[in-house]
Simulated scan of single mutants.
Amino acid sequence: MTVMAERPTMSGTTESQSFEELLQTLDALVVPDGSKAEIIKGNIVVSPWSKGYYLDVMELVCEQLRPHLPEEHRISYGPFLYVFPGAERAFGPDIHAGHRSVSRHASTHLDGEALSFVAELTSSSTRDTDLSDKVEVYGRAGIPVYLILDMQEEQATVLWTPSVKGYESRVTRPFGERLLIPAPFDCLLDTAGFKAP
Rank of each mutant, 00 (worst) to 15 (best):
V118C: 08
L147Q: 00
S76P: 02
L26P: 00
G112D: 01
T129D: 09
R66M: 12
T161Q: 13
V57I: 09
L26Q: 01
H68E: 05
V135T: 15
D133F: 00
A141C: 08
G98R: 03
A114E: 06
L22S: 03
V135Y: 09
L55V: 13
I95N: 02
E120V: 00
L26T: 08
V137G: 07
V145R: 06
Q24K: 02
R74H: 04
K165W: 12
Y53A: 10
S123D: 03
A106D: 14
T126A: 10
V158N: 01
M58A: 06
Y146V: 01
Q152W: 12
D133I: 06
L115K: 03
R127D: 09
V57F: 00
I39W: 08
E153R: 14
L29C: 07
D94L: 06
R100T: 11
D111M: 09
L115Q: 01
D150W: 13
Q24Y: 05
P67M: 07
L55H: 14
L81K: 08
S163M: 03
L60V: 15
Y138Q: 06
S125E: 03
M151L: 07
I75M: 06
L110Y: 09
A141N: 09
E63V: 15
V61E: 12
V46E: 01
H96G: 09
G142A: 01
V137N: 11
D133Y: 00
G166W: 05
L29Y: 08
P93M: 03
E63R: 10
D94A: 15
A106T: 03
F84K: 04
V118T: 08
L60F: 00
V102W: 10
